[in-house]
Design a protein around this nucleic acid. Structure first.
Lengths: 340, 340
DNA sequence: GTTAGCAGTCGAGGCTTGTGAGTGCTAACA
DNA sequence: TGTTAGCACTCACAAGCCTCGACTGCTAAC
């Protein structure tokens, strides 16, 4: 059943007000602030229809109305008026990525920070570690007699480095040779394929510096299997929402947000082909308080994921703000990365 | 005034019990659990003397006693029986640092995690960024046409790397030359001295690749001035202490713990010449709840700081456990670093 | 379809009371 | 002088009760 225009308006008022105040919305307040042409009794009858349709809930008989999860879904799809960010906010985003390193960890951190600052919600960033992602090159850079940096460059042009140990007496030429061999073996392969490399077989072809070879492959595999970095920002912002004013709910939020595995599960997109993913009410996630929403956005250039960013907060979340921020951060990130 | 042996014993019982249960300790419980040879009335009179001396507090007339900050200080200095870690715990620490990178960030993270896991308190790790620390070498490693890694190696043998951009057409020889020039300028200098380098003057001597030179120096200065990495672990553990069961206290704890500046201030040692630093009650730190303690340990090899590690928790903290863990982590860390 | 009026509902906050744990004091004893 | 039993006293905490006020639902009239 399609809602009448007036019902839609009223529902929108209820949701907007509730998002702002966190207090159940009464018929009176609607006639005072928005619909001054009709009386509260009229609004009341509309409200009770909306309640029958499942869009509104009443915490108890004599209280105002609160939006249901259904209502929020309708809101983000139809009702919501998208918000434009202010000049200041846009500048703030730009500046955060100015002069920035290409190291994936650094970018994750900056993005998470910007998102949390602008939305005032707890934000999370996951570096994509897609098994379909292709390793472009691997480089071994020796910087001391016994130590070298292993740099992994992937298709999305972001980097990750880690330190490996070289055996005594290894010449620069040997390092170079090893480098070439490893590249031959690995570059062009997806993460998934690298994970399946048969060490024994490869070792037969390359016998001289087995240990280094093994440790390089191990570092690579470890990097791939750790499933991406997770960055958290603004965890203290959780406390500012009245729905999380009891310890128990904050505790459960925290336990999810500090556990990498749970977070990754929560931020997985549903396989839908949309860029921004909104989970309202987070039914099915037992660890979370029931009145939680998660909004995530996955950014990519040329079909290769850069990462997934998002915020976590109460169902009564300022979706329009959050979505604008995520969209704008996404735009800038993608333009920066594709410039390289 | 020196306390009698029995008073000391009783004080110790009170503190031990209170640390375990978080409930004010009654005279009766002491005679039941520890001092079965005397009556509760006797203990009561001892308790009231201890209270007069300022070691005990009574939340209200007719409740048991709670240790004062003075009592905790006495406790950690004299009364406390040091705890030995179990075999399992020692192994756990060892394993955490096995096969570990020398990158300072990675080490910080592991250490913070181990400390938090074993003590069950929120733990914090600061990488030392001592202005007295000496830069041993700086290395520019080119890994792509326009990009290079800048690696900073300091006296404590830990590393930090960041990415810099090279101008088009720069030859490998030029990079090498730049590398030498920068090393000439910087190696052997302390962080403090590097910070004071006069860019203009140095530029006169080196004109060819000004921009790269500037960006290298800037990266160095930035690294030095950011004042060290801060790692936080086990923030969710705060919730398990009954003293932080109201939102306000958790909020204030969180606000300190998520702010780098506040944390650094809090973890500064008092300039005392001891390795382990205990702040009880944290008077003077307005941002923290008053019933907080911070125990920190600064590790070093050959007089060079590796970092400062610690836990933050309620005054009613299991000091003996915390101190043992910090000592053992310190031992292993120092032995690992000095092996290099 | 809209409105005013009125009774009914329910949560929040304030007040009262009962309960029990724990102390302080006193007087007696070793 | 140290120790003990006994008893009156104190106080936090929880349960129960009451009042207040914000809303709603319903009804009858426009």
């Amino acid at each position: 059943m399609e809602l009448s225009e007036r019902k839609k308006k009223i529902l929108q008022y209820v949701i907007d007000d509730y998002i702002q105040t966190a207090v159940p919305v009464s018929s009176k307040s609607i006639t005072e602030k928005h619909l001054t042409t009709v009386s509260s009794a009229t609004v009341r009858s509309e409200l009770s229809t909306l309640e029958e349709l499942g869009y509104l809930l009443q915490p108890h008989t004599s209280s105002g109305r609160v939006p249901s999860n259904e209502a929020y879904k309708l809101y983000v799809n139809e009702l919501m008026v998208k918000e434009k960010l202010s000049e200041r906010e846009l500048e703030y985003i730009e500046e955060a990525f100015l002069n920035r390193s290409k190291n994936i960890d650094v970018i994750l951190k900056s993005a998470a920070k910007v998102i949390s600052e602008l939305t005032q919600y707890t934000s999370v960033a996951l570096s994509a570690r897609d098994s379909e992602e292709v390793v472009r090159t691997v480089k071994i850079l020796r910087f001391r007699e016994n130590e070298a940096l292993l740099i992994i460059v992937t298709d999305n042009k972001l980097l990750k480095d880690s330190i490996i140990t070289l055996p005594d007496g290894m010449t620069d030429d040997a390092v170079e040779e090893l480098n070439e061999l490893i590249n031959e073996l690995i570059s062009g392969k997806t993460f998934g394929e690298v994970g399946k490399i048969d060490l024994d077989k490869s070792l037969r072809e390359f016998t001289e510096y087995k240990e280094v070879f093994i440790s390089v492959i191990r570092a690579l595999k470890e990097y791939i299997s750790t499933g991406g970095e997770v960055v958290l920002e603004g965890e203290d912002k959780m406390f500012s929402h009245p729905e999380y004013s009891d310890i128990e709910s904050v505790k459960s939020l925290m336990s999810v947000v500090t556990s990498k595995d749970k977070l990754v599960e929560l931020m997985s997109d549903d396989g839908k082909d949309i860029q921004i993913n909104i989970k309202i009410g987070t039914e099915g996630y037992d660890d979370l308080p029931s009145d939680c929403s998660v909004v995530t956005a996955t950014y990519s250039t040329n079909g290769v994921k850069i990462g997934t960013y998002g915020v976590i907060g109460p169902t009564r979340m300022d979706y329009k703000k959050v979505i604008s921020v995520l969209e704008n951060v996404g735009k800038i990130l993608e333009s920066i990365v594709s410039k390289w």
